[in-house]
């Protein structure tokens, strides 16, 4: 009697284990298949243009010449710029919520910040076109170029059209802020009380405690949250497409329109009539996939290193 029930349990266990193993393996398999598919479809374009696909700025569907450099440049610059804007804000919000906010304010503010992540991308884009872009064109760009006399520098030169790299970066910053902020908040709240007490007992002010003990303890988590934001920014399509201006040109000025890889694919896949054009778009997709993979691997490695520094 006892032995049969034991036997039954072990069969059930085996089936369960097989099933979960299959589920677990199916996801990496899907990723591998997807990567292979994209790479195969991208191959004709990559073979035709070689390195020039990554370095050339000429994207001409009529002549069948494709160079994706402006889109690659635009993706990286808009994302990095977005992080530069969003990180201090998001970490500031997280510090306020975890360390300073009175209890009655903490939940509502945290909820509203998290809600930013729930707004559909296209709504951000619409707001970007009708509110953010005019605001940048009429207030911020003149302020930067004329009032602060930065118009002569490469970063802020040229006419203020409105749709621009700057607009894309600002909208991306707003979109990634809740991700960075909510992960950072969780990480800060997880810093043990003993660490805070150690700092306070040594005569630290509240600010010195946060800066000298809480943030260093949480550094690997904060770094992880920034990378999470970067991953979001790299792939964001809709809102960026609506405000970046979509022009195949690399310009040093943030006031100039640009392009991103995701926008390029979204704008052209429906018009891609010949095989080479379609393959070129697939190649852009492959590059985007590769960049996000590299960023994620790099992020894991960074977080691991910081953790090791912290705990080994």
């Amino acid at each position: 009697m006892a032995s049969t029930s034991l036997h039954g349990a072990s069969v059930g266990d085996r089936i369960f284990r097989l099933a979960t193993t299959a589920f677990a393996l199916s996801i990496p398999l899907l990723l591998v298949l997807l990567a292979i598919d994209v790479a195969a479809a991208a191959w004709p374009a990559l073979k035709t243009f070689g390195v020039a696909f990554l370095t050339s700025s000429r994207w001409d569907a009529v002549d069948g010449v494709f160079g994706a450099a402006p889109a690659i440049y635009g993706t990286i610059v808009s994302s990095v710029l977005a992080l530069l804007i969003a990180t201090p804000l998001a970490v500031g919000v997280a510090i306020f919520l975890s360390e300073f906010a009175p209890a009655w304010l903490r939940q509502p503010v945290a909820f509203l910040v998290d809600l930013l992540a729930a707004i559909p991308s296209v709504v951000y884009g619409l707001w970007g076109i009708f509110v953010l872009v005019p605001f940048l064109r009429e207030r911020v760009m003149p302020l930067l170029a004329d009032r602060l006399h930065l118009g002569g520098t490469p970063l802020f030169s040229g006419p203020a059209y409105g749709p621009s790299m700057l607009a894309a970066a600002v909208i991306l910053a707003i979109m990634v802020l809740p991700y960075i902020s909510s992960v950072t908040r969780e990480v800060l709240m997880a810093v043990p009380r003993s660490q805070r007490e150690a700092a306070l007992a040594l005569g630290a002010t509240r600010w010195e405690m946060i800066w000298g003990a809480v943030l260093p303890y949480a550094s690997s988590g904060v770094l992880g949250s920034i990378i999470l934001g970067l991953g979001r920014a790299l792939g964001e399509t809709m809102a960026v497409t609506m405000v970046i201006g979509n022009r195949h040109e690399i310009s040093s000025s943030l006031f100039a329109p640009g392009y991103t890889m995701a926008s390029l694919i979204a704008n052209e896949f429906s018009e891609a009539t010949n095989d080479l054009h379609l393959s070129a778009l697939m190649a852009v997709g492959a590059v985007l996939l590769a960049i996000t993979l590299v960023v994620n691997v790099l992020a894991r490695w960074l977080v691991w290193r910081v953790q090791r520094q912290g705990q080994a």
Partner: peptide
């Protein structure tokens, strides 16, 4: 100065 029940060195 104060020393606590569980040692709490900073991860530095």
């Amino acid at each position: 100065g104060m020393v606590f029940q569980r040692s709490n060195p900073f991860p530095k």
